[in-house]
């Protein structure tokens, strides 16, 4: 078994309204920053032991399917790196 960190990034699907991101963007603009758009995302870093990187990614994907993301509004991606 090898130690991995699986990073799951959960984002709103394209086209789903993100009022918090819009509010954050407006606050940045009030501070004088110029920007075209702002998107927010949730990132989960999961440490786990697995036989290989594929297995680690698969398990993290299942976690996203069953809890971390809501398929009605979210897309997610999983990246796996060996833990040092």
């Amino acid at each position: 078994m090898t130690g991995y960190t699986a990073t799951v990034t959960v984002r709103l699907k394209h086209g789903v309204l993100d009022p918090e991101a819009e509010t954050t963007q407006r606050a940045l603009e009030r501070l004088g920053f110029e920007l075209d758009d702002l998107r927010s995302a949730d990132r989960f870093e999961i440490d786990l032991d697995a036989a290989d990187a594929d297995e680690a990614g698969e398990r993290a994907g299942e976690m996203a399917d069953r809890l971390l993301a809501n398929p009605t509004i979210h897309d997610y991606e999983v990246e796996v790196a060996e833990r040092e």
Binding site: P19, E20, E22, T23, N70, T72, I73
Partner: peptide, 10 residues
């Protein structure tokens, strides 16, 4: 079905 998420007003 569906989901209830952040109000448009935030």
């Amino acid at each position: 079905d569906g989901a209830f998420t952040t109000n448009r007003s935030a």
